[in-house]
Design a protein around this nucleic acid. Structure first.
Length: 851
RNA sequence: GCCGGCGUGGUGAAAUUGGUAGACACGAUAGACUCAAAAUCUAUUGGGGGUAACUCUGUAUCGGUUCAAGUCCGAUCGCCGGUACCA
């Protein structure tokens, strides 16, 4: 029960020799290429499966217990599919470009290539020690030039389609990582990777036009078998809204201001306008009297971080520009204000303000005493903005219409008068793609004074990452590559004149946008993958990984895939048909009364479930927390494998609970699973195996077990499949004889779960390895049915008797049984009750309703 | 605030279409084996009452639908994840 510190595991020694067994079979699989897979055309399409794990970033910390969770789930599923005659593609690789290796290089002077390859070695060894059925011949790493050659090639396709463009507008900048970040990499105003507060910085950068695909990224979500939560996150992130662009004329012919609104029906209630401080027209509309005030406001707004301008801002601020605009529906003169609650990055950076029906405008209007005119009935606009539906008032031709009708009527009117038009907007921004760092794919472009930006010819790819003396980013917005003149200075591929290479690199997400395609054809030097192989395997049938990539990797990869689809290079609109997110493996932690947490090594369990802080003697509450070094509750997979074996580790992670939910690690729970495997081993080694017929009850249990394990494995419900196998073993334990006709099928059922142990037992039975190539056992439906069933008799819905009766008894006979039952009689006629109604469900129950 | 998910024993969790709540496992208690311990095996184990047969009660809270609700519907509370002046 206690979450013992790691050194205590070793005390729990097992009897079955998992260390030697596991090493032996891992060697066997490797030498025999048991899990190598080919595109066999004779296997029909419905018998091909592509099962993919999110590949890891090979960090210096090594494998975390969270990794094997998803990997074990797909491993069991793949082994199950193979045994059922499927041709299964199940590869593994490494997402090996990225900042940690580079930061380590800065600290130590070691080349990122050296540490990365060392980490990959370590990860590969750790992953192999769990006995997964990957086809290691297909392993890829995104940092190798053979791989990034094609990442660069895809970038050039994007460039040629006009989807990659250069820009110099303010972007998110992490002062610690010294690089620009995409919107998706900013969480709560901080860098997703290092937690440093993000600032704004204006630098030249490469941007990918993901917004051109916004509609398709949104629509095609409906075709995917993903969890609602991830789809919802992507929908929210794309943030599509429908409304209208409306043009407001500035008084005295100073120009016009287009605004975007989702509520064109409230146009009669627009009593002022607001421009974002960064809006291009601010200068034009500011009157001489207001110039100083406006300039001061813009300066103060510019100093604020995004976080201060949005999250932290409770009070609305702003200044009057001095100018007025004309409301196009009623020609009323409305003031134009400058306020930072309007963002330059959304819509046109300017709004019409309808304080009666918009919370933000209401707050602003109240603060600055601007008029609030209701145009919909309902609510109390003296207290708050009313955003609900209602009949329109004070709205000319919209009066008496509801919200929906008024919106369409107004849009028609605007379009007819050429004052505006229907419009769609997105929260999604284009993808800021360049990084001012070293350890990433060089962007294969050349800047020529006469030809402009020119792509590196495809046949010259890969454009190799050069060696640098110092990895430290300049911080000025240039990558360390800029410091190598012999690399930067080149000739223009078009005119042959002097030119400079692009010095930015790609973000870590680039490599993971298409790695699942490279697995199909990892050695190909002619193309990124052979179309025939793509046709054979794609799309990915099942993709398992963490939910933290909901709007990063999963959105970017979908975008690239759609581009490749449009170019005819891939055969599907979507890369990942089905997605499952494994839950996080958490750990227990101990909490004081004041909610502060105590490191696990400072806690003692004095009696069951009583936890005491050693230093103070105060009782602590056990809570669930993320594993963290500071709490000393991190579980290291290597320790677990060493003390309990990979099979125990695999099975425990599956037995903990449903794959999709997060659950706390418990080492005593692990030992329960280990005990089960040990019992299997002891049955195999201690009992005599008989070829004679097994008793019928055992055969029935076997068939029920085959059915349950098959259906649950298919549905990825591994915890209940394991429970059924435990029931089966508990039953086998009761007899001295082990019948081969029940034992052998059981070992096959267990094989995907505990592959090493079952290979060994299988071989000891005199069978030919590998058990992974053996056919999955089939159940006989007749044998899963019981002859006698337990039926309950209820009176008024309360169980009053339980009886065993022959299965399939007809309803009348069933009712008769109930009435004849002594206990039922006591509760019905015996108690002087009148029978009102009788409900009978075959093989289940009889419910007698009495008064 | 908004979106998504979840609330079941001491603990991790089970429970087809609504039909025996708590399978399986951990922990605990007792017993067997042992000089003893560990390991192993067996039994019991939601809570209350009763010598017992049995009985009352129980799936976050309150209410509803139903012969029957962990499951369906409504409201409330709590937890987790995401997101937030997006006009």
């Amino acid at each position: 029960m206690t979450n013992s510190p790691p050194h205590l595991y070793y005390a729990c020694m097992s009897k079955y020799p998992f260390n030697t067994i596991e090493q032996k079979w891992q060697n066997f699989w490797e030498e025999n290429k048991t899990f190598s897979v080919k595109e066999d055309p004779s296997i029909p399409e419905n018998k091909r499966r592509y099962v993919l794990d999110m590949f890891p970033y090979p960090s210096g910390a090594g494998l975390h217990v969270g990794h094997p969770e998803g990997y074990t789930a797909t491993d069991i599923y793949c082994r199950y599919l193979r045994m059922n005659g499927y041709n299964v593609l199940h590869p593994m690789g490494f997402d090996s470009f990225g900042l940690p290796a580079e930061n380590y290089a800065i600290q130590t002077g070691t080349h990122p290539l050296v540490t990365t390859e060392k980490n990959i070695e370590h990860f590969r060894k750790q992953i192999k020690s769990l006995g997964f059925c990957y086809d290691w011949d297909r392993e890829i790493s995104t940092h190798t030039k053979e791989y990034y050659r094609w990442t660069q090639w895809i970038f050039l396709q994007l460039y040629k389609m006009g989807l990659a463009y250069e820009s110099e507008t303010p972007i998110n900048w992490c002062p610690d990582c010294k690089t620009g970040l995409a919107n998706e990499e900013v969480k709560d105003g901080s860098c997703d990777r290092c937690g440093t507060k993000v600032t704004r910085k204006s630098i030249r950068q490469w941007i990918l036009g993901i917004t051109k695909y916004a509609d398709r990224l949104l629509e095609d979500l409906d075709t995917l078998d993903w969890t609602e939560s991830i789809k919802a996150q992507q929908r929210n992130w794309i943030g599509r809204s429908e409304g209208a662009d409306v043009i407001f004329q500035i008084e005295n012919n100073k120009g016009e201001i287009p605004v975007y609104t989702t509520r064109p029906d409230t146009l009669f209630g627009a009593t002022y306008m607001v421009l974002s401080p960064e809006h291009a027209l601010v200068d034009t509309i500011t009157t001489p009297e207001q110039r100083n005030t406006v300039a001061a406001y813009i300066e103060s707004a510019a100093k604020k971080s995004d976080l201060e301008r949005t999250d932290l801002a409770k009070e609305k601020t702003g200044v009057f520009s001095g100018s007025y605009a004309i409301n196009p529906v009623n020609n009323s003169r409305i003031p134009i204000w400058i306020a930072d609650y309007v963002l330059i990055s959304y819509g046109s950076g300017a709004i019409m303000a309808v304080p009666a029906h918009d919370e933000r405008d209401w707050e602003f209007a109240v603060t600055f005493q601007l008029p609030i005119i209701p145009v919909l009935e309902g609510g109390d606009i003296t207290q708050e903005a009313y955003t609900g539906d209602g009949n329109h008032i004070n709205s000319g031709f919209l009066n008496d219409l509801n919200k929906e009708d008024a919106i369409s009527t107004m849009i028609d009117w605007l379009e007819k008068k050429k004052l505006g038009k229907k419009a769609v907007n997105y929260k999604l921004r284009d993808w800021i793609f360049s990084r001012q760092r070293y350890w990433g794919e060089p962007i294969p472009l050349v800047h020529c004074a006469s030809c402009g930006t020119v792509p590196v010819p495809e046949e010259e790819l890969p454009l190799e990452l050069p060696d640098v003396a110092s990895y430290t980013p300049s911080g000025t917005g240039e990558s360390p590559l800029a410091t190598i003149p012999e690399w930067v200075n080149t000739s223009c591929p078009v005119c042959g004149g002097k030119a400079r290479r692009e010095t930015n690199t790609m973000p870590q997400w680039a490599g993971s946008c298409w790695y699942f395609i490279r697995y199909l054809d990892p050695e190909n030097t002619e193309s990124f993958a052979d179309p025939e192989k793509i046709n054979y395997w794609m799309p990915v049938d099942l993709y398992v990984g963490g939910a933290e990539h909901a709007v990063l990797h999963l959105l970017y990869a979908r975008f690239w895939h759609k581009v490749l689809f449009d170019l005819g290079f891939v055969n599907t609109k979507e890369p990942f048909q089905r997605l499952i997110n494994q839950g996080m493996i958490t750990s227990f932690a101990y909490q004081r009364k004041d909610k502060s947490l105590v490191s696990t090594d400072l806690v003692e369990e004095t009696s069951p479930d009583v936890f005491i802080e050693k230093a103070t003697g105060l009782q602590l509450e056990r809570v669930i927390a993320k594993m963290s070094k500071s709490l000393k509750n991190v579980i290291n997979p290597d320790d677990i494998i060493h003390s309990f074996g990979a099979d125990s580790m695999r099975m425990y992670e599956m037995f903990m609970g449903p794959l999709q939910v997060s659950k706390p690690w418990s080492t005593s729970g692990l030992s329960g699973v280990h005990r089960f495997l040990d019992r299997v081993w002891r049955l195999a080694s201690e009992r005599t195996i008989e070829d004679k017929e097994a008793p019928e009850p055992l055969m029935k249990l076997l068939h029920k077990t085959i059915k349950k394990v098959s259906l649950d494995t298919e549905a990825l419900e591994f915890n209940t499949a394991i429970a059924q196998m435990m029931i089966f073993i508990n039953e086998l334990y009761k007899a001295d004889t082990l019948y081969s006709e029940v034992w052998e099928p059981f070992i096959l059922l267990l094989a995907p779960y505990a592959p090493h142990l079952t290979e060994e037992i299988w071989e000891n039975l005199g069978k030919k390895p590998s058990i992974a190539d053996h056919a999955w056992p089939q159940w006989n439906e007749e044998m899963t049915k019981e002859d006698v069933v337990l039926v309950v008799f209820q009176v008024n819905g309360k169980v009053r008797a339980k009886v065993e009766i022959p299965a399939g008894l007809d309803l009348e006979a069933l009712k008769e049984q109930a009435f004849a039952n002594e206990r039922i009689q006591e509760w019905t006629v015996g108690a002087g009750k009148t029978i009102v109604k009788v409900i009978a469900v075959p093989d289940k129950l009889v419910n007698i309703v009495v008064k």
